[in-house]
Amino acid sequence: MCQITKKSYAGSLESSDVLVQISPNPGKGLEIDLKSTVKRQFGNAILATVNDVLREFDITEAFVSIDDKGALDCTIRARVSAAVCRAAALTDYHWKVG
C-alpha cells in the first residue's frame, strides 16, 4: 500500500489542465472533492479516472481535491499520478508499455 505522507500538488489552473491536491487523511479513507468547468457532463468520468489512478498506486487513504479546467483524460491521469508521486515521495514509478 502506498502512503500519502505529505500534502502535495500537481498541475495548473490553465485551460485544458487540472490542479490536483493530495493530502493525508488520517482515519478517514478516500475523499475526493471535484470542481470542474465540465462537471455536469464529465463529472463521473473524471472521478472514474481519478479513482483508477489511486487504485493503480494502491492508495486507500487521502484527501484529493480536483480543480478541473477541461483537461483531457490523459492529462488528469498524468496530474493525479504526479501529485501522488510527490505526496508519497515516490521516485521510481513503474512506467508501462501500451
Binding site: 502535495s8 500538488y9 495548473s12 489552473l13 490553465e14 485551460s15 489542465d17 490542479l19
Partner: peptide, 21 residues
C-alpha cells in the same frame, strides 16, 4: 486566462518550496 497562468506559475514555485498550504 492571464490570472490562471500567473497563479499557476506562482503556485508551482511555492509548492516546489515545500509549502503545504
Amino acid at each position: 486566462g492571464i490570472v490562471n497562468t500567473l497563479i499557476s506559475r506562482l503556485l508551482s514555485e511555492l509548492i516546489a518550496k515545500g509549502l503545504a498550504n
